[in-house]
């Protein structure tokens, strides 16, 4: 069985802020990490490999420095790593990202494709389902448990608002995963050695037989027109006094604005 795990290198968004005066992103010194959800995707793939036998390939589309994320994926149990990188991919929105990823996955071949639920920078959660559509394979989002895989079928649990659905799908399938699925392992010593030595396979636009007009900024239907800082809430109030007084003031305030 071949499993591909799509990973994205992202800035640690917990540390990114926007300067409200200049409207600029303050990302100096913000570290790059593997998108946290993708670690769970990778862990799921490695566990399937351990249980049933599989070859796990980590795939990322990004600039050359994304290679470090691929090496990290190998240290956590991926067998191979592919860096899809080309100037032509720059500026891709989710449509163009998915188009390119699907091109690479088609070339590599996969029975299961794993994605994270969403990337913590773009936050769209669209790349997984769009990639599945381009590959013309089914997908299940928000997978929180994999019950079994047999006879070319997989049964998973899909997290919903009020519980979960148990869903069966034929292979090949694309799954996007949430954090309850598992606890990602730490890299092993052996893994770290392997990561150092690993050959990262490079792919560019010629390798995925892409339609030039569907790549990068040119191929992207959405355009980011501007960014700005979120509004901060006006009318902030610290309620002073002893506990009883504080509670009374709060109730009065809430009644004033008709919330009680």
């Amino acid at each position: 069985m071949n499993i591909i795990v799509c990973i994205k290198q992202v800035p640690d968004t917990a540390e990114i802020k926007i300067n409200p005066e200049t409207n600029t992103l303050m990302r100096e010194g913000v570290p790059s990490i593997i998108n946290p959800f993708d670690l769970h995707a990778l862990e799921a793939a490695v566990r399937i490999k351990e249980d049933l036998g599989a070859r796990v390939t980590a795939l990322t589309m990004g600039p050359p420095q994304a290679e470090s994320s691929l090496r990290e994926a190998i240290s956590m149990g991926a067998d191979d790593a592919v860096l899809l990188s080309d100037r032509a991919f720059a500026g891709s929105d989710t449509w163009a990202t998915s188009y390119a990823l699907a091109g690479a996955i088609r070339k590599l071949g996969a029975d299961i494709v794993f994605c994270g639920k969403q990337a913590i920078d773009g936050d769209t959660a669209q790349v997984g389902p769009e990639t599945a559509e381009f590959l013309d394979i089914p997908h299940v989002s928000y997978v929180r448990n994999i019950e079994w895989i047999r006879d070319n079928t997989i049964r998973v649990q899909r997290l919903m608002d009020e519980g979960y659905d148990v869903v069966e799908s034929p292979l090949p399938v694309l799954l996007t995963v949430v954090k309850e699925l598992n606890q990602p392992r730490m890299p092993s010593l052996k893994g770290k050695m392997a990561a150092k030595k690993a050959q990262i396979r490079m792919m560019g636009k010629a390798d995925i037989e892409a339609d030039e007009d569907s790549l990068g900024l040119k191929g992207s239907p959405t355009k980011v027109k501007s960014i700005f800082a979120p509004e901060t809430k006006a009318g902030r109030m610290m309620i002073e006094g002893g506990p009883e007084e504080q509670v009374d003031i709060l109730i009065k305030e809430l009644r004033k604005i008709k919330c009680l």
Binding site: L25, K223, I227
Partner: peptide, 16 residues
């Protein structure tokens, strides 16, 4: 919102 809610983005789809 994007970047975990740290920024807001204004997005268009002008050509499709």
């Amino acid at each position: 919102p994007a970047f975990g809610g740290n920024i807001m983005a204004s997005i268009l789809c002008p050509d499709y």
